[in-house]
């Protein structure tokens, strides 16, 4: 159970939900339909929401992400799914919080600049290493090696097993 009312949740998260969906789904009408689906699920599941398991924003995000994945599976099987969504393993709601994003920012700042750039271009922008190599004026081999180094350093800094 939560102290948020349905109206408060809609007011707080509708701009984030529609913006996230628009970045992935073609067409304003499709995006608005999906946004409605998200809030229909949010309101239906609200009595079961457990604040001790996840922040409300993380919970709304998880429903949004799953709704977008279902949309692609249902109606756009031929269309390529956003790479960050293609990993359809369950979202670990403990991992996703504003604090974890700040920790990632801090870990990225502690990396040598080129390694930070490779991680952002690869995992935020979804660019392949070949394109990153071209952008940075480096060979593919050099970028691949730095990418591995960056992952190793981040694993240590973020205490990832």
């Amino acid at each position: 159970m939560t102290s948020y009312s349905a109206e408060q949740i809609y007011e707080l998260y509708q701009p984030k939900v529609i913006s996230y969906i628009r970045a992935r789904v073609h067409g304003q009408a499709n995006a608005e339909d999906l946004c409605s689906d998200v809030f229909e699920k949010v309101f239906r599941k609200l009595p079961d929401y457990d604040p001790s398991k996840a922040a409300i924003g993380t919970w709304v995000f998880t429903i949004t992400r799953n709704t977008v994945i279902d949309y692609f599976r249902r109606s756009r099987p031929a269309e390529e799914l956003d790479e960050n969504l293609s990993d359809d393993s369950e979202v670990d709601e403990n991992l996703l919080s504003n604090e974890s994003l700040s920790e990632l920012a801090s870990a990225l700042r502690s990396l040598p600049q080129q390694l930070m750039d490779i991680i952002v271009l690869r995992y935020y922008d979804g660019k392949p290493l070949t394109e990153i190599a071209e952008m940075m004026g480096l060979s593919y081999g050099a970028v691949k090696l730095r990418h591995q180094n960056a992952l190793m350093l981040l694993r240590e800094k973020l205490h990832d097993d």
């Binding site: 984030k16 939900v17 924003g57 993380t58 949004t64 996703l96 504003n98 801090s106 995992y123 981040l154």
Partner: peptide, 16 residues
């Protein structure tokens, strides 16, 4: 990293 950056596109943490 994929999950965190995907969440960033929703949450828009100012630091990141």
């Amino acid at each position: 990293l994929k999950k965190l950056f995907d969440f960033q596109k929703f949450e828009d943490n100012a630091d990141l």
